[in-house]
Write a protein that binds this DNA or RNA. Structure first.
Lengths: 236, 236
DNA sequence: TTAGCATTTAACCTTACATTAACAAAAATG
DNA sequence: CATTTTTGTTAATGTAAGGTTAAATGCTAA
């Protein structure tokens, strides 16, 4: 892994603070593009690829959150850090919804900022695409997070899954619209294929069906003597 | 990241065995400091930074476990490997409590030692630097200052945290919204993974939950059989 | 030494999970 | 079409994990 200078987009309207921060980051081996407001920030964002965006929240013309939303539309991955005034606690949460990786109260300790930047870069570097996607499945209106063992319906309600429920649903999702052989689940999840484990599996199929009822387009069909099939119906 | 020679502190009283081992390690690109007993070992430890300590358990003046305890007081991170006589099974466990990363029965296969050393170094290398240096966390409306061990609610009320409370919360915050495996906390904080330490950890989880109740958006969720998850809910 | 902590251990309770049982329904089979 | 096999579903059971509180222990500093 070759060490390369990381590019940071800094959007901060206060000229004094902005310049100081920029210089500090450059001193610490980052390549910094400084924009003085949200509009300019977005223009610069479109023109280059950045490894990190640091956005002030309070800015004329276009505030940090709005800018973040626009950036997210273009690029879902780039880490975003917000700079906020100490007072605004609630807005901070709003920031998280936009997908902030972190935020800092002004004034802040520059060392802390540096640490956070490093931590974020590190995280991004190690979380390979394969890594994070392996556990995420879209099942109709549901999202299955197989690592944390929960099923989200339509971005809202969260259903906790037991280990067996989770593994079974994951296996079904892996074979979406296709046959998931009984035997496969039994050997992979139950590690044994006999009458009782088979009945146990049926019990789990029933549980999953109950959860999935929330979305009428999603169903688990049985293929007699063969296994099951997770289908997502397209017609309404 | 530049490859650099790793420093090993070897504390072993048997002059023959010690010298052979030292030479063997040097042959394998390690920088080795050899001490002949626990007293000397501690003196040398204080004078330098080591990447690994290899301690014989049976030694005159100061045994390996006692030395390890002293080393731990100075430095909680440095990996420790014990060399034990084949017989002592029980003592080995005692060693784990001190926070041993591994142990080896004498006589042992030098290849095995080398492998273990490599594995330990690797493990430490991936425990990111950023992680170990991060001490400030925003947890919903709370601010955790992990260095000074206190939790501030909404800029006002300050809650003092005990060392264990602090470390546990810090570990949870480091894994915010993600799984913090039980085992991780037990090995990192309690340095031992058994029924009682596990129950102790549960007690601390309860304490943290009590503190965190001030902000209803913050909760510690359990993932049965896996660990805990610190989540900050965005919706109100 | 004691007072004041932090931490562990203990006890007891609740919840979560997986399996098994029991019975109903559907599908296959001859 | 009667019978067997497979599947659907719900409930009961046993065990393990976690939650909570209090008491016991250990530690440290006055």
């Amino acid at each position: 892994m070759t060490e390369q200078q990381k590019k940071i987009l800094l959007v901060e309207d206060d000229p004094n603070f902005g310049t100081i921060l920029k210089d500090y980051l450059i001193m610490n081996e980052y390549e910094v593009t400084h924009a003085k407001n949200g509009m300019e920030g977005f223009e610069k964002f479109k023109k280059d690829d950045f490894d990190l965006c640091i956005l002030d929240v309070m800015m004329p013309y276009k505030d940090g959150f709005t800018l973040a939303k626009e950036i997210r539309e273009k690029n879902t991955d780039v880490p975003i850090v917000f700079l906020t005034a100490k007072a605004m606690k609630e807005d901070v949460l709003k920031g998280y919804k936009v997908g902030a990786d972190d935020y800092l109260n002004k004034p802040f300790d520059s060392e802390v900022l540096l640490m956070k930047i490093k931590a974020i870069m590190q995280r991004k570097a190690t979380e390979t695409v394969a890594d994070s996607k392996q556990f995420q499945f879209k099942i109709g209106k549901f999202d299955l997070n197989s690592k944390l063992r929960f099923l989200t319906y339509d971005g809202g309600e969260q259903i906790k899954l037991s280990p067996k429920e989770n593994e079974l649903l994951r296996l079904l999702a892996l074979h979406e619209n296709d046959l998931m052989p009984r035997e496969l689940a039994l050997t992979k999840i139950w590690r044994d294929d006999n009458y009782f484990t088979s009945r146990s599996m049926d019990v789990y199929i029933a549980k999953l069906r109950k959860y999935l009822k929330l979305d009428p387009k999603v169903e688990i069909l049985n293929i007699h003597g063969e296994g099951f099939r997770l289908v997502i119906n397209s017609e309404s």
